[in-house]
Design a protein around this nucleic acid. Sequence first.
DNA 1: CAAATTAGATAGACCATCGAACAAAAAACA
DNA 2: TGTTTTTTGTTCGATGGTCTATCTAATTTG
Lengths: 391, 391
Amino acid sequence: MSARVNSALIRQINIARVFHALREHPESSQRDLGRLTGLDKATVSTVVAQLQDLRLVERSEQAKTRRVGRPETALTIPRSAGVLVGVRLEPTTIRVVTTTLTGEVLGHCQLPGSLDVKAALVTVRAVIDRELAEIGEGWASVRAIGVGVPGLMDRTGTLVLAPNLGWRDVPIRSTLEEMFDCPVAVDNDTKAAAIAERLFGLCRTVEDYVYVTGDSGVGGALVLGGRVYRGASGFAGEIGHTKVVPDGRLCGCGRRGCLETYVSEAAILRRLAEQGIDAADIHEVAELAVAGRPEVRALLEEVGRHLGFALSNIVNMLNPTLILLGGNLASVGAHIIPSLETALSEQALGPSAAGVRVRVSPLGEDAVPMGGIALALDCFLAPPRLSVPRG
Amino acid sequence: MSARVNSALIRQINIARVFHALREHPESSQRDLGRLTGLDKATVSTVVAQLQDLRLVERSEQAKTRRVGRPETALTIPRSAGVLVGVRLEPTTIRVVTTTLTGEVLGHCQLPGSLDVKAALVTVRAVIDRELAEIGEGWASVRAIGVGVPGLMDRTGTLVLAPNLGWRDVPIRSTLEEMFDCPVAVDNDTKAAAIAERLFGLCRTVEDYVYVTGDSGVGGALVLGGRVYRGASGFAGEIGHTKVVPDGRLCGCGRRGCLETYVSEAAILRRLAEQGIDAADIHEVAELAVAGRPEVRALLEEVGRHLGFALSNIVNMLNPTLILLGGNLASVGAHIIPSLETALSEQALGPSAAGVRVRVSPLGEDAVPMGGIALALDCFLAPPRLSVPRG
DNA sequence: CAAATTAGATAGACCATCGAACAAAAAACA
DNA sequence: TGTTTTTTGTTCGATGGTCTATCTAATTTG
């Protein structure tokens, strides 16, 4: 019993198409948008008119002239169209990013987090208030808010389980929506970060990729056919407990040799400590590697090898275009990619592996809040999913 | 530059929806179809009228009366609506199944295959001719033909590479379409079989599952969100070369310990032969197991263990609802499932593994030709994929 | 036999895309 | 300098969807 398929839906889809086309190709003319979306110029004309009514699009004053004929009038998504708010909600910190509707960052702000649900959500409000004041905007110009949370979400925006926060069955979305009187979207942090890469990062033209992140554990998200794949109950992408070493190190899950015991930030720090090397966080590890400490380099090389092994099976399985290292893995990306690629090409099978590239996320620290921005964008444009049952 | 989104497309989608609803719920009334598809009864009325014009739907003579009021008139997809043809094209045999438009099997037929492209395609025609004569139908009643091929297909219906056949760059679809003057769809055999399970088998209500088959090698197909997932270049689902035993048996791919060296029919027969047990094919192996031969049982238990290990990582990764054993694995399913499930529950992580079930394909021998039927159905209903770029 | 009830058909409102004709604005040209 | 050419963007009408509301048909109920 999916969404009704009628003309209103068509318009919604085409509005979203045109908007995204303009977001990706600023200063486009209606003719350009027609070419980009495959729509007739007459249709583009009415869609653009509607977007203008919504104050989402403006026409440039000066016209760009091509060779001959009436010059095109460039369209823009103006600053006055409003702002989007992206939130990363974590036990230790709550971080907010504001952007224009095109995704251009306006500012950041963060405050300490809380394990108490109520306190945390109040802090969310406080951070957003502060950030809005900073950039000189009011709540009225906020079009939508997107939140990335380290936990499992269901489809209605309820957080089912978040071990790190100690939360369970929290209706985050509806609570925040009442609090702010503004559209709110909530998703898992890693999945949100993966979507951010698709909209704003390296994957703008990539439909199939694997996003890997390693903080306390090793997380992952699969973007397949341009959308995040969630699996039957939302757990898809959990690669942390792939076995990479038979009878290897003991993992928190009770088994041995899980990827997570070798590749996460926590694991890296622990193993360095065992060798008497103290590093406070992954950035210090990266600095030590850059400085040329051989033990550190060797360890990171091993990390790359293990990760490459785990990814090789995934590559065989899913045949993605790209593997993207995000979160804390991004900081040490340069030091693990060589051995990772070697392991990958040794283990993965010809055709699937041949095309796959490995890259470091360019969004870095802000991947999750930018994922919030992506969610917000989706939610206020309300782009519907449409499919035929079966087939 | 995806398909144009206009009202004709809407009608196409809704026609396909109504047709599939009726296919799954025979003898439905228009009111039922409205409930099933979410469409208004007025819309259903016009859609059904159109389906009647296409001779795809007929109204039953007798009316089913509920408690009170005008009785419903049941609708059917009549036998006279035509037939579908499903083909399995293999080096050794070419097998054809004919069905009604609802997928009810009318008959089978097969002839020896050929490694020569031209000879094979001529044989396809011969088998279909013979089968049509058998069931007393003419070419005029064939609505569409679907073919499953052991090779890699591209989107246009060209076979890119088929090692077993020794073919490369064969435009199968267009060739057959010219030959038969009838819509033809072609897909990889394993992927076709997986789709058959979705339309006619165990997965009618399952959106996310993994289909595994083991003949000469170990193949697989992923059905994610109700559609076959193909990956960036069509290789998705290849699980045969997942490493399950470190420094294990040498594989044809040059590496060691690949799943394929333990789980395929060929591997099972070879390993039994090493123990001095002769079996001509997997069915004999199954018979030996049923008879209680301990070495055979032990080997199949090991097969289940290895397969379970490989699948555990996939389950963690994709969080599917179901794992389906097809092809030759189906014959020995009963003997490998226990150890497979044990391995799975030991290796896979709690939440993802908790829900997953393992089943044997009920379609058996005919899975691939029935996949052809599924392809044919899709292709003549032409259900379009529709999505918004991004998000 | 009339009233109530339900299924299905039909008409009209509404809205979508799209092709074609039209208006607008610039360069090119005589 | 005017006229033509060329290209962009708007508008109108055709076509064709879905949906609401109304109407007709066929049965049970009282």
